[in-house]
Design a protein around this nucleic acid. Structure first.
Length: 532
RNA sequence: GGUCGGUUCGUCUAACGGUUAGGACUCAAGAUUUUCAUUCUUGCAAUAGGGGUUCGAUUCCCCUACCGACUACCA
């Protein structure tokens, strides 16, 4: 068994957009597979025809793609089968709806061997039993006791069973749970678990109505057929693990039964319960990797559209419920592949923290080159109404280098540096009061004159001179002049800043003059003098 | 209600049964700076409670509490 090539799968159901918890599950599967030199497979579990949502499958594939979680086998965004280079897809198709003919035989095999039976009770009948039990403060489950008094092939005469199978279409095949047996299970993350079969119900495996299997049957059959070696999935599946163990046993597949690892859930940042779609809207952060518009037209924001880098998103997700045991927090995908281990996955649920998520993105933003940032910023400038043709690429590039330390997202850039492109139209009242005293205004007049006479190499005229050199030259001249006259540096600089920016905060005065140029600087000082 | 899982700073987490219980995010203070931000330094802040086992429990066992998942002809 240890000789087998590791094969894991991510098996989403296309009933809606994949949320970040799902992406994390996919990521852990991917990391596990890649580290072991194995295969990562995407299988679409669309056996619920009622809950199918158009576009969901494409959304899931697109999301994974954006994250760099690329399958070796499965379906791609166009719905094509992804093939491994070495072999033609012997395991296709990867959509359970397309595997429909496979399952019934397996269900019948179970019946033939005494591990399952036909059940003819209608949904309404069972519902009534549940309500009845509930009224008596009890729980109705279809199990080794109740099945004796229900309509199934265990209680009905053989010819009646045959008749019902042939003439009706609302029957199911149920697993026949053994009585009072201890199922002993091992989970890669949680260790040894034991459950008595008496507490488990006889799950429906196959439905005649749509001739489709339920999750349990389809899952076990496909995992077996696709030679899956490890099942890494969410904690919500832990309660059905005993059933799955018994299914493998009933089929006689215990030799090649995959090992299981159940991941804890992602929790709401506040309050109780697992992270849900609504939390994002309420707390102001995305729950989904990509923007999602549901069939009703309702929009949910996505990490991509919110300006997160996929690398940052993957990184923060990886650390939510796993850690390398070192103090390293920043990982590339390759480093994650190297470092990942199921042994270090945390058992308890992880609460998502939006602040930390922003911090991760900031770290990745700083890793971008100035040119990359400029590429990302220019479209935003255009959106803001800036005539980008007036600014050389190098202008934006150098500016990005200057401001990237101050932002979490490229989208923050505009607020940080809009004054490089448009002159302030108003001045912060508090700052005006604080800095524009009569004495300072007298000084500003002289400073303006000084700047007017200064020989300045600004962006437009810098030529071969580096930005740092130009800025330094401006700064030295200006501070030299202020010191010479024994004026207060802060008062003068902040008044200038107020006129350049509109408020007394922002970048260095020399930087601003370098970028906007002497002429514009003087214009802004004049405007400021007139306004206060 | 039943079954299963979980519980270390506010959050993410570290700690062969022996540590002043460590790091990161957030927050606060200080330093640097012409302001803001950055950067640097410092600080605040945790083993759910009770019993065992042990020379010694965050760590092992039991009980309680709390949290969560599941309890469909959904996945």
């Amino acid at each position: 068994m240890s000789e087998r090539k590791r094969r894991v799968r991510f098996a989403p159901s296309p009933t809606g957009p994949l949320h970040m918890g799902g992406v994390r599950t996919a990521l852990y599967n991917y990391l596990y597979a890649k580290q072991a030199g194995g295969d990562f497979i995407i299988r679409i579990e669309d056996t619920d025809s009622q809950r199918f949502v158009p576009g969901a499958e494409k959304y899931i594939i697109d999301s994974l793609n954006w994250c760099g979680i690329i399958p070796d086998e499965g379906v791609d965004a166009q719905g094509n089968v992804v093939e491994t280079p070495s072999e033609r897809h012997p395991h296709a198709p990867y959509r359970q709806s397309q595997r429909k003919p496979i399952y019934r035989g397996y269900a019948e095999q179970l019946i033939a061997n005494g591990y399952a039976y036909y059940a003819f009770d209608t949904a309404e009948e069972l519902d009534a039993r549940r309500k009845e039990a509930e009224a008596n403060k009890q729980t109705f489950i279809y199990n080794y006791q109740t099945r004796k008094e229900l309509k199934n092939s265990l209680t009905l005469p053989e010819d009646e069973v045959k008749r019902l199978i042939e003439t009706t279409t609302n029957w199911t095949i149920r697993f026949k749970n053994p009585e009072n047996e201890i199922v002993k299970m091992d989970d890669l993350i949680r260790g040894h678990i034991e459950v008595n079969t008496n507490t488990i119900d006889d799950k429906v495996l196959w439905k005649r109505a749509d001739e489709l299997p339920t999750y349990h049957l389809a899952n076990i059959v496909d995992d077996h057929l696709m030679e899956i070696t490890e099942v890494i999935r969410g904690e919500e599946w832990l309660p059905s693990l005993p059933l799955h163990y018994m299914l493998y046993k009933a089929f006689g597949w215990t030799d090649t039964q995959p090992r299981f690892a159940h991941l804890s859930l992602l929790l709401k940042p506040d309050g109780k319960g697992k992270l849900s779609k609504r939390d994002g809207d309420r707390l102001g952060f995305p729950v989904f990797p990509l923007r999602w518009v549901n069939p009703e037209g309702e929009v949910s924001r996505g990490y991509r559209e919110d300006g997160y880098y996929p690398q940052a998103f993957v990184n923060l997700l990886a650390l939510l419920g796993w850690n390398p045991g070192t103090e390293q927090e920043l990982f590339t995908m390759d480093e994650l592949v190297q470092a990942f281990s199921l042994e270090r996955v945390i058992k308890s649920g992880a609460r998502f923290n939006a602040d930390k998520a922003k911090w991760f993105n900031q770290e990745y933003l700083r890793k971008q080159t100035d040119a990359q940032l400029a590429e990302q910023f220019i479209p935003i400038l255009a959106e803001k109404g800036v005539d980008t043709s007036k600014y050389p690429f190098a202008f934006v590039e150098q500016l990005c280098g200057l401001i990237k330390e101050r932002a979490h997202f490229v989208a923050d850039f505009w607020d940080i540096c809009s004054y490089f492109f448009i002159a302030p139209t108003s001045y912060a009242e508090n700052d005006v009061k604080k800095f524009c005293t009569p004495e300072t205004m007298e000084i500003i007049k002289k400073v303006k004159e000084f700047i007017g006479n200064m020989e300045i190499k600004e962006f437009a005229t810098a030529g071969d001179t580096s930005k740092a050199e130009c800025v330094q030259a401006i700064e030295e001249k200006l501070t030299g002049y202020i010191k010479e006259n024994e004026w207060k540096m802060g008062a003068v600089m902040n008044t200038l800043r107020l006129f350049f920016v509109g408020q007394a905060k922002g970048l260095g005065i020399a930087d601003i003059i370098y970028f906007v140029g002497k002429e514009e600087a003087l214009r802004r000082i004049n405007a400021g003098e007139n306004a206060v």
